[in-house]
Structures are given as structure tokens and as C-alpha cells.
Design a protein around this nucleic acid. Structure first.
Lengths: 394, 394
DNA sequence: AAAGTTTGTCTAGTGAATAAACAAAGATCA
DNA sequence: TGATCTTTGTTTATTCACTAGACAAACTTT
């Protein structure tokens, strides 16, 4: 017979409590042992012994004494953020953006490589190059590079295989495996919108929200779902294909085979296509915003029109999930001045009261870093989980 | 400072393991102590002691010996399903359906009351009457009525307040509180589609699925979401308002304030409205099905048309959630012969391959009992959780 | 009849948490 | 200034739940 589910014993208890202490330090540093005991409800002695293990493992360290509140001065504890580093990459359609972060998510180094040739082998060469450069920038540390992660504009399985990246022309690329074989450190490969959602949740505008929907509006539309504080991925990791939600039954044909897909009306591509029709040659999002800033009514109208269509889809999102926040990110975020009011107007007009009252609409706070920071958060989380699992002997 | 999260100690371990043993018995009865130890991974001694506590609490009992497999014959354990009973009710727009179930979800008694006057006070009187009758049908037992639950066609908060039930004309009814004050047993009030989803998950067609979407197609459309094996309710319990998902931008006006809502095209109401226009006077779903069965091409076309529109929304669902199963329930389920092929055709035509290949489309197995059985499952689960919490002294 | 198997209980031991005592270090106040 | 009170962090004794392994009971196989 096979094992049904986890059994609960003292090992699990210790692991969970240790993780809880670490998380508390992560979130509230600098903090004393006594304060941790208070916050978590654990006994002072228990906290002391767990803290001393964490110090032995170099994951945290003491940092002098704090202010007394009428008695002995507390010894403050800090996360040892330079115990290891992550390499976190946003693999886009035209460029690769990579950062080296410490264990608190501080960016220590940043590289960007633009590319034109999209064949996988060419891009992989550039990716190796970028990762190697970032690796060289990492200071000496206890744990070194603890994880490498890549955000990808495509459909990614829970095993880190890219099934399809339409705007790169890739199919069935087992990227996670390829990178693991090359670097021999934990590798995460995740959809770009999922990563963006997590980035905004952990480091961005969504830190207080447990129900958050992140809409990544770029050439296409992808959506990342944070439900009950965690990333929701569906059965095999393909949730969030809301770009291919029908908002016009039997509307225009989409290359996905469906008709009337949201992204046909509300994406960067849709905007640029409309711009073309309206006489803007070689239009880009940046150029259109500039035109709008200078009072070009046609440009303003084009942007507002995309905003309106975005509002239709976001209203659906609000009805489906009853979220606390909807966050708009990726390239079209730059046009926030024009699209956000249009989105809000549509929501105001169409969304059901109960759901509407709960929700806040925001622009991605991390801007172009939403995805890389989400990837960094995955890397960091995975590292802390794994060090918790096997009690590191010293 | 306030408590951040749960701390892990031996009490929690014991509670969880006891729940695990109980769940194993619930799922695999009759089963021996030795087999439980095998399946769960717990030590034989641990299982023995937990089992003996559960027997003391009358939640399970021994039931003679089983077949030997080459050694001492095992003592089989069964859930003591008659240790308590639940009263589970589906409060519809035209009738109240209530059942008395035991702790395994077996229906012991069933009552239905039709009503015309929809004022809350009138319906409440009937509800009391129905509950009292079911209560009288319950045999003597250790724990008596362990819970009363109601499925409601409307927006329900996590606190069991009905904010709005449009087809009943109710607003802001704190039904959970009202029933608790009257009966002094645990009360659950939940949206009808959420309950239906859970019913199909626990007792119906979804027993093997952890990612399941249940579409309740009746006068309106409601959707219940089972994500990662649990009911997903959103921030305040209002998720699943997919009936008001736009599938035609700037389409027909919906009373909800939105335009082009799915339920304007794919609900029982939509079907009946179209029937009226096409010369079917006083049409009902049943009459239309009968007409279709007798070869009425107009009736067949009407049903297939609704099926097609259902397919549009269900395709969206598949793209949004990447579920394992989509289950169609409530009144329109009766027309399965005509609508299911139409839905499947639309999915086949429009859904993205990856998501389409993962998903199975089904009709609710529990038929008109989906909602009551979901409510029963809530009641039973809540009871087992609570008895686990405080160690019952004997 | 002897040997081997399976079930279920019992006993000793382990490990993690808790409570409470205690030491260290500072604040407060007469 | 010195006595007392507070707060912090460690240490010690105790408790509790699980595990391993021994053991008895009951059954099958040879």
C-alpha cells in the first residue's frame, strides 16, 4: 500500500516551528528572542534553542542590543541576507532581464541583453552568458548561489517544461532540466505572469493581500492568481490563460483557435494594430504615450479604448474571484495615466456591487521588476524550505 | 502583540493524526488497525491508542473479524455512522428540499415543500417546519443532530449572511444567526453552487478530482470552485459569480448592471425566453425536453443553442482554471441529451489544446441532490473537526 | 505438530515542547 | 546610592506523543 498523506510527529513539529521562527525574523527584523516568543506563542526556551540552531546554520545573526523597555536590553536578530544569493531572470520576447539578489530580495546586480534571433539555441547561449556574469558578481558566501529561476512568456508545466511560448516560437523545451544539468543548483521555471503576481504579493503592492490577481498586459495577456496567499496553478500549471477568455462570442479569430479572445482587444498587440490602422506608422507603446502626453487626441482615444477593453476582462476577474486586489503589470502599465481611469470607469459601470466594493485596482509597484522579483521569491522560499528539511549538521 | 499563526506542538500532532485515522476509516472501512498503520505510515501502537480513543468517543466501532491473509485474523473497524445526524437543505426559488443524513451521508429521510409566497418570514416558517419534521425522523443517537445546513441561491458571506438572493427578493438576511438562535446547533449557510460543487466532489462524480468546477445552471448561473481539493470562496465568499461574466462586450443589459452576462444567454431563463419568442407558450424545461424527445426540431435547436452558449462560458472556465473536471448541474442538467454534445462541440472548437486535453466534462451524478449532499458534507466535516479539537472525556 | 505470519498490545526509550526557576542586565525611585 | 522591579535569555525538570521492538494471540502452511 502506498502512503496516503503526511504523518505528524516531532520532526515535523520542529521543522514547522523553526520555519515559523525564521519567517518571523524575516518579516520583523530586527527582533529579539523574547519578542519572537511573544509573537509566535512559542515558549521562550523553545525559541532560544531554535534561534541558536539558525545561527549555527548562518541563516541569521545577532546584531548588538536594542532599546530597553524597563529591563535587560534585548539582543536583536537579523536575517543573514548575504548567506546566499539567487539569480532571477525575466526571459522576454525581445530581451532577457536578469538580477542577482540576496536572501532578502535586494538587487545587487542587474543585466539586460536584447536579442533578435529567437531560436532556442541562440537564446540559450545568451541566457548562459547572462547567468554566468551574474554569478561572477556574487560575493563569497556560506551557501553560494542557492537557486536560479526563469520567468517565461508561455505555458509551463509544474515540472518546468515550456510546452509553448508562442511569441518566441518555442515548443516543448524542458528548460528546468537543461539548466539544472548545466548548473547543478535548484532551478525554477515559471510562467511570467505567475511570477509577476508573486513578486507583487511578496515585495510589491500586494503585501497585505491574500487574494490577488495580476494581469500581465504585453503583446499578449497573461494572468497570475494568488489565492489564499499562494500561487494557484491549476491541475498541471496552465491556469490563468485568461488572455484567451472569450469576451465577444464569435468575435475575431484568435491564433489559439478560439474566437473573441480578450487579448485580441486589450493587449499591446491590439493597441499597436489599431494604431497602425489609424495612421501611426511603426508605433510603439512608448511613442503612443508620448503622443498622448502632447495632447494627440487620437492617441489618447486609442489608449483609453484598450483600457476600456481591459476593464471588461477585469470586471470578469472580479466576478470570478472576488479578489482583494487586481494589479496591472508588464509593458502596458507604462500607459497607466490613460488606461487606469478607463479601466476604473468600466468596472464602476459594470461590476456587481458586492464584489466591486471589496476590490482595489493597482498598478504594479515593482514596474519592470515584478517578474524577476517573483522568481527571486520562489528561489528564496525554496532555499529556506530545503535547509529546514534536513537539519544541517555543524 | 497578537498571535501570528499556529504553533506546532504535541497536541496538534495528536489531533491531526487522530483526524487522519478517522478519515482513513471513513474512506476505507472496513479496515483493520494494522492496515491503517500501513496506509498512514503511523506506528501500530500509535494507531491502536488513537483507535481506542475513537471507540470511546463512539465515533467508530469494531465489527467482527475479517479474512486472514496467512496469520491472525484482523478486527475490522467501521465508522459509527449513526452516532449523529445532519439536516441538510437546498432552499430553492420554488421549493425547499431537505434531507436527514447519517455521518456517512446516507439519506434517511427526505422532504420537499413547494412554495409560492417568497417573503422571508413565510419561507422561514416553512423552513422551520421542514427542519422540525426531519428532526423528528432522526433515531436516538450519541450526538443527536450535529449540524444544520442550508444551500441558498444567492450571495452569502463567510459569516452565513445572505447579502442578496435576487430570485427570492431577499437582501441582508443573517440566516445562519437566525437558525443558530433557534436550534442551538452548528449551522452552515452556503451558496447553492458552492455546496453543489462540494457535493459532487465528496459524494458524486468528482471524488477523484482535486480541481473541479461545478456550473449550476438554473434560472441564473452560479459556479462553485474546488481548487486543490477545497472549496474556494474568495475574499468574502463571493467568488464564482461567473453568471455575470461578460461574453458579449456591450451585449444585452443584465439586471446586475453589467452587459452581455453569460447567464443572459445560457441559463434556464434564457432558454424559456427564447422558447416564448418561438411560440412555446408557458414553456418549462421539462416540456421542452419532451418536445425535443418527440422530434420537435425547434425545441432541439433551442436546447442546443443554450448548450452552445454554455460551451462558450465553460471554455473560459477551462482557460481560467485548468481544471480536471467541469460538472454541469441543477435544472438544465435534465436536458443533458441535447446540451452536453453542444457544449462539447464548442469546447472542441475553441479551447486551447493543453487545457482541453486535461479536462473532462460531466453531468452531476447526484442530480437534484448535489446541493443537499454538499451541505451534508459541510455538516459532517465540521462535526468531525470539532470533536477532534476538544479531546472528549469519558 | 512445528514453523511461519499476521494482528494487536505493551514497554522502554526518544525527542520536542512547556513551565518554572534562575542569572544577567538594565530601569526606577525613594 | 542602593533597593526593588522589569525584561531578557538560559537552564532544568517534566510532560506528552510517537517509535521500535518484544511479545502474546490467533491463524495458515507444511
Amino acid at each position: 500500500m502506498s502512503r496516503l498523506s503526511q504523518t505528524w510527529n516531532q520532526h515535523v513539529v520542529k521543522k514547522e516551528n523553526k520555519a515559523l521562527v525564521l519567517k518571523t525574523i524575516q518579516g520583523k527584523a530586527p527582533i529579539s528572542r523574547a519578542a519572537i516568543a511573544n509573537v509566535t506563542g512559542l515558549n521562550k526556551g523553545t525559541v532560544s534553542s531554535l534561534v541558536s540552531e539558525l545561527i549555527d546554520e548562518k541563516l541569521i545573526h545577532e546584531s548588538g542590543t536594542g532599546k530597553s523597555s524597563g529591563g535587560r536590553r534585548p539582543v536583536m536578530l537579523l536575517l543573514n541576507e548575504t548567506a546566499g544569493f539567487t539569480i532571477s531572470v525575466d526571459l522576454g520576447v525581445k530581451s532577457i532581464l536578469g538580477v542577482l539578489t540576496d536572501l532578502r530580495g535586494n538587487i545587487l546586480s542587474e543585466k539586460k541583453i536584447r536579442f533578435k534571433k529567437k531560436d532556442f539555441d541562440d537564446v540559450l547561449t545568451l541566457l548562459y552568458q547572462l547567468i554566468d556574469e551574474l554569478k561572477n558578481d556574487a560575493p563569497e558566501s556560506e551557501y553560494g548561489i542557492v537557486g536560479i529561476g526563469i520567468g517565461v512568456p508561455g505555458v509551463v508545466t509544474t515540472e518546468g517544461e515550456i510546452l509553448l511560448a508562442p511569441n518566441l516560437g518555442w515548443k516543448k523545451v524542458p528548460l528546468q532540466q537543461i539548466l539544472f544539468d548545466h548548473y547543478h543548483v535548484p532551478v525554477t521555471v515559471e510562467n511570467e505572469a505567475n511570477a509577476g503576481a508573486y513578486g507583487e504579493k511578496v515585495y510589491g503592492v500586494g503585501q497585505m493581500s491574500n487574494e490577488l490577481v495580476y494581469a500581465s498586459i504585453s503583446i499578449g495577456i497573461g494572468v497570475g492568481l494568488i489565492l489564499e496567499g499562494k500561487l494557484y496553478k491549476g491541475l498541471r500549471g496552465f491556469s490563468g490563460e485568461l488572455g484567451h477568455m472569450t469576451i465577444e462570442k464569435d468575435g475575431a479569430n484568435c491564433r489559439c483557435g478560439n474566437k473573441g479572445c480578450w487579448e485580441l482587444y486589450a493587449s499591446e498587440q491590439a493597441l499597436l494594430d489599431q494604431a497602425q490602422i489609424n495612421g501611426f506608422d511603426d508605433a510603439t507603446v512608448e511613442k503612443l504615450i508620448e503622443a498622448a502626453d502632447q495632447g494627440d487626441t487620437k492617441a489618447i482615444q486609442l489608449l483609453e479604448n484598450v483600457g476600456d477593453y481591459l476593464g471588461v476582462g477585469i470586471t470578469n476577474i472580479i466576478h470570478i474571484f472576488n479578489p482583494e486586489q487586481v494589479v496591472v503589470g508588464n509593458t502596458l502599465r507604462q500607459a497607466e495615466k490613460y488606461i487606469m481611469p478607463a479601466i476604473e470607469k468600466r468596472i464602476e459601470k459594470n461590476a456587481i456591487g458586492f464584489n466591486k466594493n471589496d476590490v482595489v485596482l493597482n498598478v504594479a509597484k515593482l514596474k519592470k521588476h515584478s517578474t524577476v522579483m517573483g522568481i527571486a521569491a520562489f528561489n528564496i522560499e525554496k532555499f529556506f524550505e530545503e535547509t529546514g528539511r534536513e537539519t544541517v549538521l555543524t
